[in-house]
Design a protein around this nucleic acid. Sequence first.
DNA 1: AAAATTCACAACCGCCGGCCC
DNA 2: TGGGCCGGCGGTTGTGAATTT
Length: 316
Amino acid sequence: MGRHPCCTKQKLRKGLWSPEEDEKLYNHIIRFGIGCWSSVPKQAGLERCGKSCRLRWINYLRPDLKRGNFTQQEEDLIISLHEVLGNRWSQIAAQLPGRTDNEIKNFWNSSLKKKLKQRGIDPITHKPLSETGAQEEKPKPCVKPIFNPFASFEYQAAFNPVETNANLFHQFQQTYRPLEQNEFMMNFDNSFTSRPNSVYCDYGEALDIPDSCGIQESLNDGSNWNCNIAAQMSSVLGNEVLNWCSSEIKLESPIRTEFEAYKKRLNPCPGLQHVESSEEFSSYLTTSRSQDLSDACFDISRGELACELKGNFLSS
DNA sequence: AAAATTCACAACCGCCGGCCC
DNA sequence: TGGGCCGGCGGTTGTGAATTT
């Protein structure tokens, strides 16, 4: 097994990414999609190794990332999944759309581990510390009541995916909610119409995003690139809120069936696709730690991007 | 107010398995 | 079949912000 040539090269940049680098990488991926990561730096004009580019895209620039704090539901889900899967962060991340394995790993190491210890639970075995023989940390006095994630799982000998996915289902209910009055949907001809009433649209049924666009290939968390691309688009295009569907969101079958039924109930218009609020992407742009990816950073113009999307995603 | 410490998280490192030639 | 390349993954480190002393 040879080492990555990129790792042995000396002149490549390391450390935090600058806004300029982000811009280059972002624009490159948006324009050309993801092909061979090792060739991305050269093509995008970056002095980084392909691996670094891949990581930056997956963990930070990807438009379908959910930003902000973990919700209580996500927290519970991570703890439950960790009990079953251990440190298999990528598999855990696959159950949390919009979250990366790195993000979950960091959250676990910096926060959840501590929380569990304070509750007298061994974060490795998920058993009471008294049982495992480990030193139990004295719980600090807390002002806020502590939510016990195990309350609903204690009775289960093993992890129950149906039960856990109920949380996810709730999230999807939120995602697949009917559009609000001031929201817009995108028509097949790329025009926009506001929503007079709660009609669902579902591009996911009509559009089969081809693998050849290359973008989905690198996503290891099962989430769909097109899921929030519209949110990202709307950020670029203005304030129009586009809702897109991720028709391939991976759900365990029991919940998927329920989800499909739910979708059907809400979707009398199967040729059109649900739209997601742009809030998440907007907030991620503004809460970026190492940089502020304002819309102005990126040179994809409104018309250009619409064209890109038409070309890349509408062709099959 | 400044220094020290803690925390959160972005990024890197190195191993592994799959694929291709 | 074996070597080289690549992407995926989990562990670890580095860095800047926040908090404490």
